[in-house]
Amino acid sequence: MKNSFFYFTLLSLFLVVSCKQNATESTSNLESNSGSVVLAKVIEENYDIKSDSTVFKSANIENFDQDGKSIDVFWLGQEKDTVLRFYRKYDKNNKLVGAEYYEQGDIEPSRDTVFLNSNGLKVEAALNAENQISWKSTITTDAKGNPILKTYENGKGEYRGLDSLFFDDQNRIIKGFYENSKGKRYGIKTYQYLKSDEKGNWTERNMFVNDTLRQKQTRILTYHE
Rank of each mutant, 00 (worst) to 15 (best):
residue 1 M to P: 10
residue 3 N to M: 06
residue 3 N to W: 02
residue 4 S to M: 07
residue 6 F to M: 05
residue 10 L to E: 12
residue 11 L to T: 14
residue 13 L to P: 01
residue 16 V to F: 00
residue 17 V to N: 15
residue 19 C to Y: 04
residue 23 A to E: 15
residue 23 A to T: 13
residue 23 A to G: 05
residue 24 T to D: 15
residue 24 T to P: 01
residue 26 S to K: 04
residue 26 S to D: 15
residue 26 S to Q: 10
residue 28 S to I: 14
residue 28 S to R: 00
residue 29 N to A: 10
residue 30 L to W: 01
residue 30 L to P: 11
residue 34 S to P: 00
residue 39 L to S: 02
residue 40 A to L: 05
residue 40 A to N: 12
residue 41 K to D: 15
residue 42 V to C: 00
residue 47 Y to V: 04
residue 51 S to A: 10
residue 51 S to G: 04
residue 53 S to I: 07
residue 54 T to Y: 03
residue 59 A to Q: 13
residue 60 N to M: 14
residue 61 I to L: 13
residue 62 E to M: 04
residue 67 D to C: 00
residue 71 I to P: 09
residue 71 I to F: 01
residue 74 F to Y: 14
residue 78 Q to E: 15
residue 83 V to Q: 05
residue 83 V to A: 01
residue 85 R to D: 12
residue 85 R to P: 10
residue 85 R to K: 13
residue 86 F to Q: 04
residue 87 Y to P: 06
residue 87 Y to M: 10
residue 88 R to T: 09
residue 89 K to N: 13
residue 91 D to P: 08
residue 95 K to P: 05
residue 100 E to Y: 06
residue 107 I to C: 02
residue 117 N to C: 09
residue 120 G to T: 12
residue 131 N to H: 00
residue 132 Q to S: 02
residue 132 Q to K: 07
residue 132 Q to I: 01
residue 133 I to K: 00
residue 134 S to R: 00
residue 135 W to F: 09
residue 136 K to F: 06
residue 136 K to H: 09
residue 137 S to H: 01
residue 138 T to G: 04
residue 144 K to E: 13
residue 145 G to M: 11
residue 147 P to T: 09
residue 150 K to L: 11
residue 153 E to P: 05
residue 158 E to H: 00
residue 159 Y to P: 06
residue 160 R to I: 02
residue 160 R to G: 03
residue 162 L to R: 11
residue 163 D to S: 13
residue 165 L to S: 06
residue 169 D to L: 06
residue 170 Q to D: 11
residue 172 R to T: 08
residue 173 I to Q: 14
residue 176 G to Q: 07
residue 176 G to K: 01
residue 177 F to S: 08
residue 178 Y to S: 04
residue 178 Y to T: 05
residue 178 Y to P: 06
residue 179 E to Q: 15
residue 180 N to M: 03
residue 181 S to K: 05
residue 181 S to Q: 08
residue 181 S to E: 13
residue 183 G to Q: 11
residue 185 R to C: 10
residue 186 Y to K: 10
residue 187 G to P: 09
residue 191 Y to G: 03
residue 192 Q to T: 11
residue 193 Y to W: 10
residue 197 D to F: 04
residue 198 E to M: 02
residue 199 K to T: 11
residue 200 G to K: 02
residue 201 N to S: 06
residue 202 W to Q: 10
residue 203 T to I: 11
residue 206 N to L: 12
residue 206 N to I: 04
residue 210 N to C: 06
residue 212 T to G: 02
residue 213 L to Y: 03
residue 214 R to E: 15
residue 214 R to W: 11
residue 215 Q to A: 09
residue 217 Q to F: 00
residue 219 R to K: 12
residue 222 T to A: 01
residue 222 T to F: 01
